[in-house]
Simulated scan of single mutants.
Amino acid sequence: MNTQENINFNKVAAAIEYIRTHFREQPGLEAIAKATHTSPYHFQRIFTDWAGTSPKKFLQYISIEHAKEVLKTNHASVADAAFDTGLSGTSRLHDLFINIEGMTPAEYRNGGKNLSINYSFAESLFGNLLVASTSKGICYMAFYKDEEIALQELRQKFPNARFQQRLDLLQQNALFIFQNSKEPLQQIKLHLKGTDFQLKVWESLLKIPMGQLTTYGHLAAQIGRPAASRAVGTAIGSNPVAYLIPCHRVIQSTGKISGYMWGTTRKMAIIGWEQAQNAVITQEPVI
């Protein structure tokens, strides 16, 4: 890291600490930039390059995490959470939760109480799978070794949702992707919850063709954040839907295959199988 990069990193680190300390004041860009002795324009650019998101968005993430903690306490109202976070009213907190969490503050406090989730266990070419769905689409898919631990991890994602062990059409359609079949796949519907940045990264992953690979740096450039490869890696690591959102198609710029939530060996197996399938599909017919 050269001298300028060190300076920029120190400014970003100081800004993050300032935001965490002063989030109840809901400081604007000028106030945060002033705390780092940087012009607002220059600060906005270096912060976004380093953190993978704008100072405003980072402040929103810090604010909503605090509001979540308030909502977890007994008898805390949405108004209590908004006031303690420094927001001007419940409508602002409501908008934050909708934009970032994909649910209202009350729905978060209830832990998905009104959400109904079907789940089932299945076998695949690459190991056992737990797949779960709402009425809107697949919300979770993970490889597992222990069935009980896998189910526990799913429940932690939606602590108060209603669960039913049931294989539905959404799940069947998703699992069909592992079949060696020449029949066209039906469109797979996903029901995802994440930050704007995470959703942007996951959407970009969906555009990587089967049998092809990309790097964290290239993916960061694709979403307009060329210096945010670390943040991209973090978003990829938060992927809630194995295989369907193909985080396995991302490798290091050196060509090294690593950093897969469900194991490097499985990642290599999936990549090899996809490339073999791709070769079969594109092979010229013999006349």
Rank of each mutant, 00 (worst) to 15 (best):
I98G: 10
L190V: 09
L93D: 00
I257Y: 08
P285E: 15
N118D: 15
V78L: 06
Y216H: 12
F43T: 07
Q179E: 15
T21L: 02
Q179T: 13
S88Q: 13
V12E: 04
D80T: 12
V78A: 10
I64W: 02
E153V: 10
L115G: 01
Q252F: 03
M261Q: 13
I245D: 00
S135W: 01
H218M: 06
V280F: 02
G127C: 12
E183H: 07
T48A: 08
W50H: 11
H191W: 10
S135R: 03
I257M: 07
L206D: 03
Q212D: 15
W273H: 07
Q277V: 10
V131P: 04
L185M: 10
I257K: 09
F158P: 01
N6D: 12
D49H: 15
G233S: 15
A221L: 14
L87A: 00
Y61K: 05
S120I: 11
L115H: 02
T134N: 11
H191P: 02
T195R: 14
A227W: 14
A132L: 05
M210F: 03
A15F: 01
R45Y: 11
T53G: 04
T195E: 09
Q4L: 14
H191G: 04
K193M: 13
M103D: 00
P159R: 03
F176S: 14
I117A: 09
G86K: 08
M210E: 14
M1P: 05
Q152H: 06
M268V: 09
N8H: 06
I7N: 08
Q26M: 14
F23P: 15
S91N: 13
Q222M: 13
V12Q: 04
N128P: 02
I62S: 01
M1E: 11
G237S: 09
G211Q: 01
F126C: 07
F158K: 04
G233W: 14
T195Q: 07
E30M: 09
Q152L: 10
S229C: 06
A231N: 04
N2C: 08
K68W: 00
V201W: 00
D146P: 01
E183Y: 09
F9H: 11
E101F: 07
W202M: 09
I245K: 00
L190Y: 04
N10Y: 11
G28L: 03
I270T: 00
N173A: 11
F143I: 07
T134R: 10
S181M: 13
A13V: 14
A33F: 05
I32T: 07
V12R: 03
L154F: 02
W50V: 05
L206E: 02
P246A: 13
Q60K: 09
Q26R: 09
H42A: 15
L125T: 10
T38W: 00
A150R: 02
H37F: 08
I64D: 02
Q152Y: 10
A142L: 03
L244N: 04
I149G: 01
E5D: 15
F143D: 05
I117T: 05
S133T: 07
